[in-house]
């Protein structure tokens, strides 16, 4: 079993917090950014768990490209959720 250091705990709460914020907020741009933050932290967790291949992919796709695509898609529709 991998020992959970205090940094791992902080990262876990950050991920959960960012995910909940992304669901709850009415501003879709903030939601996209929060989802990006979540996947960035997840990629650090992958690195801690010794999976560098997955970490690189998650960082560039989850945090970079997906967020940008979401932002572009929101730009085509509306920014605020009803």
């Amino acid at each position: 079993m991998i020992e959970l250091t205090i940094i791992s705990w902080i990262m876990a709460f950050l991920v959960i917090g960012a995910a909940i914020y992304a669901i709850e907020t009415k501003d879709l741009i903030s939601a996209a950014i929060a989802a990006g933050v979540a996947s960035l932290v997840v990629s650090i967790m992958f690195l801690v768990l010794q999976a560098p291949d997955v970490a690189i992919t998650e960082a560039s796709i989850g945090a970079g490209l997906t967020m940008a695509i979401f932002v572009y898609a929101i730009g085509r529709t509306g920014r605020w959720e009803e």
């Binding site: 560098p52 291949d53 690189i56 796709i61 970079g64 490209l65």
Partner: peptide, 11 residues
């Protein structure tokens, strides 16, 4: 080294 086609392409 770690990484490959998918991450490289994404970068």
């Amino acid at each position: 080294t770690p990484g490959g086609g998918f991450p490289g392409g994404a970068v």
